[in-house]
Design a binder for these strands. Structure first.
Lengths: 343, 343
DNA sequence: CTGAAAGCGCTTACAG
DNA sequence: CTGAAAGCGCTTACAG
């Protein structure tokens, strides 16, 4: 049977309250008593039972807020799924998780949602952040002024007081795409287009940085066109692809960091360029699995959104319920390579 | 604030004990009372707080046993890590996890360990199984006679009463290897050697089955040699490779399902065949990452051992502590493809 | 500086 | 068939 606080109390001839004071460094204990209690605890190999502690935390009704940007992408769906799973577990243990969605990249709504959640009394916030000054400032205000711990998910914002980031190492994801791209194209020259979603998402801009930087190294003669933004929209992606194809007839490849693959593929097919242009994309979606299978997309460089959502909430849970701070500032999830063979 | 059993009791004018009897179907409640309580619980949206329940379960001091075969492989290390992590969490909540190691493929030791753990009073067992009749029978005896739930990890044994398997879909892993192998070799003819670990590990034999079956489909003219077994040992693997190279000078590729990659690579290098022979292996180890980087190994088709170990123990935890049976009989983990670019 | 009591939500005997 | 009490391990006021 495990050692309890009661056994330590009996063994060292004090009350349970005193043992609690010693073991949790609440002070107000005579040094010699403190020493005795510590020694007994040590000898008996005491490890606190989290259940007892959690039962009390419950009285506080700890609330965790979540703010997601509604990109309408399959990735967001998996992220939400993970958050829902965590919400279930947290609420099983008497906590509350409040999820709010804002429009993609909408700073005003994000700030408003943050204020609302603060009013609701959250102790921690999971934020899919926008790389905007006001949002960054708000994160620091949450942390320092309100004592609300912030965990960023999906995209990170460095130089803020957020306690932890859960997501992909996006620069590395871009590099992986570059390596595979080079592997396929082989020839030394060629033109590659990059289509992204929105400028204020660091997750996407980091991928682009990694991709371009690595390509420059391993394939210096390849020309990489300026990034175009499709806002995760197939129609816009189609238009962009159209105008790229018009200008660059000998296009070798397209790197898509975001949603909008259908617009790209449709346009390529229309121009009968599907075979000529190699596509590497990112979203692990059903649609893209079909494209992988029929060969339209060569590789997907993806991430486990479900795990990210789950882990972001649980990181705060562990901090707020068990006083267990995150071990690392960056919780990077695997860079997942999908070919037609491991869907 | 969340609804508690006390609120339901007050609302429906009965005691908490009666509410408990109704909500947990313990019977012995007057139908009209039962109905009233259920209705109130429904209206208030009651969800049991697992903390209260868990605190009581603790009195039972639930024990979970784990039996691993000590293959000495890096994979086993990651599996153990995951189990240790789960052990920590289970013990935080007042349970006990007892881990036993047996020699690789040793049936006697496995049976002995199972008996020992049964004597120790475990309520659940995580087993890395051996595909041997006596072990299979013992699993069923555990389940049916002793009421000890068994979860298999790493390798599965179908047709037993084990409640769940956590691990890779090994057949599919073999197929993925075949697909990639075909992609590289391209030419229609060729000879491929298969090196495995031990015959009684279904995880390995399933990979071989998947690999051969898929190759037959997509590349029917390729010759696949009979599987050789190296017992996860580099020296034996080296000898096997030696004799294969002597007989088949034009060998195209080697598929290694197990540990022993160093033996294979050393021998190939000695024979100056490294460039000619494509290697696909499975273990996600540091050693293999080096081989990936320098190009000796082309792909790794791996699995997340840490997660598997963790999840196997936690599956039993959820069952034994929260009465939450596993949702699926097969908890397949991702088939991870590593190239030199996403290590 | 220290102890005794109350309580978190739930379940388990026990008494009626 | 039902209720009142005790208790799981821990922390939190409160009283001294």
């Amino acid at each position: 049977m495990r050692v309890t606080i009661r056994q330590i109390a009996e063994e060292s001839g004090v009350s349970r309250g005193t043992v609690d004071r010693v073991l949790n460094n609440r002070g107000k204990v005579r040094p010699e008593v403190e020493e005795r209690v510590r020694k007994v605890a040590e000898e008996l190999g005491y490890k606190p039972n989290l259940l007892g502690r959690a039962l009390i935390k419950m009285k506080e009704n700890i609330k965790i807020g979540v703010i997601l940007q509604d990109t309408g992408t399959p990735y967001l769906k998996t992220l939400s799924d993970g958050i829902k799973k965590a919400k279930g577990e947290v609420e099983d243990f008497g906590g509350t998780v409040i999820v709010k969605a804002v429009d993609y990249g909408n700073v005003e709504q994000t700030l408003a949602a943050m204020n609302k959640l603060k009013e609701a009394g959250i102790k921690g916030l999971v934020l899919m952040p926008i790389n905007d000054k006001r949002v960054l400032q708000k994160i620091d205000q949450f942390t320092e002024e309100y004592g609300i711990s912030v965990v960023t998910v999906n995209a990170d914002v460095e130089d803020t007081k957020r306690i932890c980031f859960v997501g992909q190492n996006s620069v590395q994801s871009g590099r992986a795409a570059a390596g595979l791209m080079h592997d396929i194209l082989r020839e030394e020259e060629g033109t590659i287009a990059v289509i992204s979603g929105i400028e204020t998402n660091t997750s996407l801009s980091d991928r682009i940085y990694g991709f371009c930087d690595e390509m420059k190294k391993i394939s210096p003669k390849t020309e990489i066109l300026d990034t175009k933004y499709c806002f995760e929209d197939d129609l816009i992606a189609a238009h962009l692809t159209e105008s790229i194809l018009n200008r660059y007839e000998d296009l070798s490849a397209i790197y898509i960091t975001c949603h909008g693959e259908k617009g790209v593929c449709d346009t390529l097919r229309k121009h009968k360029k599907m075979k000529k242009v190699t596509i590497i994309a990112c979203d692990l979606s059903r649609q893209n699995y079909r494209y992988l299978k029929n060969g339209d997309i060569k590789y997907l460089i993806g991430q486990d959104g479900r795990y990210q959502g789950y882990e972001a909430v649980m990181t705060l849970y562990r901090l707020l319920f068990n006083d267990e701070p995150p071990k690392k500032e960056h919780k990077y999830t695997d860079i997942i390579v999908k070919t037609k063979y491991n869907i």
